[in-house]
Amino acid sequence: MEKYNIEGTPKTPAVNFDLAAGLLEIRGRSIPENSIEFYKPVTDLLDKYGASPKANTTVNVQLEYFNTSSSKCILDIFKKLETIHKGGSSIAINWYYEEDDEDMLEAGEDYQAIISVPFKMVQVAE
C-alpha cells in the first residue's frame, strides 16, 4: 500500500500517512496561506484509504501553531475519518498539546465537540 511522507517547513507540518499501518501523523506548524492546496494530497489519499481501511486507524495530531484556514482543512480530514469510523473501522484520534497551551487544548475540544470519533487529549511537556 501507499505511503505519503513529507518533511515539515516553517509554514507547513510534517505529514506521515502510512496506509498499510493505518497511521496518519501531522506534526509541526500549519500556517500556509493556501491550506487547501497543502492538504489536498492528504484528503485525496484519505478517500482512497476509506475504500479499504485497516481494522484500526491511529491519528496523531501534534501542532505547535495552526491558522484558521488550516483549521477548516483539519476538520475536513476529521470528517473523512468520521465517515470511515461509522463504516465500522475503528479510528482513534490523539490531539497533542503543550501543558500551558490552553488555546491548543480548546482547539482540540472544539473538534471533539463537532465530530463523533474517539478523540483523546494528550498533554505533553513544554
Binding site: I36, S71, K72
Partner: peptide, 18 residues
C-alpha cells in the same frame, strides 16, 4: 465552531474565522 463546521471555505481563508 458554527463557522468552522458550516461556513464556506475559500482560497481566501476561512470565511470570517480569522
Amino acid at each position: 465552531k458554527q463557522i468552522l463546521n458550516n461556513g464556506e471555505m475559500s482560497l481566501k481563508g476561512g470565511g470570517g474565522l480569522g
